[in-house]
Simulated assay, not measured.
Amino acid sequence: MKTSKDYLRSSMDRVHLRQEVYRLYRLENLPLKDVMKKTGLGHGTVYQYLRTFEAENPELVVQMKKRKDVTPDDYKKLQAEIARLQSELKQEKLRADFYEEMVAFGKEVYGIDLKKAGTK
């Protein structure tokens, strides 16, 4: 005869199993056959667990979808993008410095304030 602890333990096991089924099928995109083999569940039970998990844990589903493991390839892409953005920033800083020098030179040599010249 099962005690209340046994029912609680089996209930917790089902909750963890539902989460694992959801992770395998929705997040890792494993085919249904592979999920069935790994969990030992039937195809109807897998779909029932998916529906139940999504209905009972909408916040957790959103968090699990947002969490994505960063692969080394993703890391390399981010490093390349950072390098590109840094070089663009250097170029824009040089451009801004050149503009400031041009304005100062125009005011010094020609007596024209270029900052005010375009605003009439």
Rank of each mutant, 00 (worst) to 15 (best):
P58R: 06
G40Q: 13
A96I: 14
V70I: 14
H43L: 04
Y47N: 10
T71P: 05
V103Q: 07
L50G: 02
D74R: 00
K37A: 15
M36F: 08
Q91D: 09
E88R: 15
L41Q: 06
K66L: 04
R95Y: 11
R67W: 07
L94C: 02
T71C: 07
E88S: 15
V46M: 11
E28H: 09
E101H: 07
A80P: 12
P58Q: 05
Y99S: 01
Y25W: 11
Q79I: 11
A96K: 15
K90N: 13
F98S: 09
N29P: 09
D73T: 11
P72C: 03
Y47K: 06
K68V: 12
K93C: 08
G106V: 04
K107D: 11
L41A: 10
R95C: 04
K37D: 14
K38T: 10
Y75G: 04
G42F: 08
L85N: 13
Q79N: 12
E88V: 15
I82C: 02
L30R: 08
M64L: 15
R26Q: 10
V103A: 07
V35E: 03
L50Q: 05
L89K: 08
E101C: 07
D34S: 14
G106R: 01
L60W: 00
E56H: 05
L41I: 13
F98D: 06
G40F: 15
G42W: 06
Y47Q: 14
M64F: 09
L78S: 07
D73P: 00
